[in-house]
Simulated assay, not measured.
Amino acid sequence: MRLTVVRGDITTQQVDAVVNAANNRMRGGGGVDGAIHAAGGPAILADCVARFPDGLATGAAGWTTAGDLPARWVIHVVGPNRNAGQTDRGLLTSCYAGALAVADELGARSVAFPLISAGVYGWPLDDAVAAAVETLRATPTEVEEARMVAFGDTAYAKIFEWGVLAR
């Protein structure tokens, strides 16, 4: 698998699937979750309600349509909320491994990832990047490109420092 990094907006990525850093309720929210729901339109929320009537557990992954996004699917993951006391790094790494497993089930060959839990959930940026890169590199998958999408310059630079190829 080729691991790349790009500075940009995850909602505009031309990939098979985008990963959404969702909350447990699976009904939209802020940050990446809000952006994906806003850009993808009501079809994503409708599919979330149908597929996840009781939400999704922290560390778990599931998929929906991508609605109006250029991608075909959205793979939703629920990262740990460090600010709420969820400090188990295994929950964070399971988001990346689980997203790749779902991508394999769907037949997705290109997947765009945000930095999960690194925003309002308060995971320290250095460790969020380490968890993402280590897990994506170590997880067996049929995905051909895992693209890290950095919204800002600081995150982009941290990911690039890990030897991730610029796209």
Results as ranks from 00 to 15, higher is better:
residue 113 F to K: 07
residue 96 Y to Q: 14
residue 75 I to T: 09
residue 104 D to S: 06
residue 136 L to R: 11
residue 110 S to L: 03
residue 80 P to A: 07
residue 78 V to K: 07
residue 122 G to M: 05
residue 70 P to T: 09
residue 105 E to D: 15
residue 137 R to S: 12
residue 83 N to Y: 14
residue 93 T to H: 06
residue 125 L to E: 13
residue 55 G to C: 00
residue 129 V to N: 00
residue 70 P to S: 06
residue 74 V to G: 01
residue 89 R to S: 13
residue 117 S to Y: 05
residue 108 A to R: 06
residue 101 A to G: 11
residue 125 L to R: 14
residue 83 N to G: 13
residue 71 A to W: 12
residue 87 T to A: 09
residue 61 A to Q: 11
residue 116 I to R: 01
residue 62 G to Y: 13
residue 120 V to S: 13
residue 130 A to H: 12
residue 116 I to C: 01
residue 115 L to W: 02
residue 107 G to L: 03
residue 82 R to H: 15
residue 99 A to T: 09
residue 78 V to T: 09
residue 118 A to V: 07
residue 119 G to D: 02
residue 66 A to F: 05
residue 134 E to C: 00
residue 100 L to Q: 08
residue 108 A to P: 04
residue 135 T to D: 00
residue 69 L to F: 03
residue 77 V to H: 10
residue 109 R to F: 04
residue 116 I to F: 01
residue 100 L to I: 02
residue 116 I to H: 02
residue 67 G to L: 08
residue 138 A to S: 15
residue 103 A to K: 09
residue 123 W to D: 02
residue 126 D to C: 01
residue 73 W to C: 09
residue 77 V to M: 09
residue 81 N to S: 06
residue 125 L to W: 13
residue 57 A to R: 15
residue 127 D to T: 15
residue 55 G to D: 01
residue 61 A to K: 11
residue 55 G to P: 01
residue 94 S to K: 07
residue 110 S to C: 02
residue 60 A to C: 09
residue 113 F to Q: 07
residue 78 V to E: 07
residue 138 A to E: 03
residue 130 A to M: 11
residue 145 E to N: 12
residue 77 V to S: 08
residue 126 D to S: 08
residue 63 W to G: 09
residue 138 A to P: 00
residue 117 S to T: 05
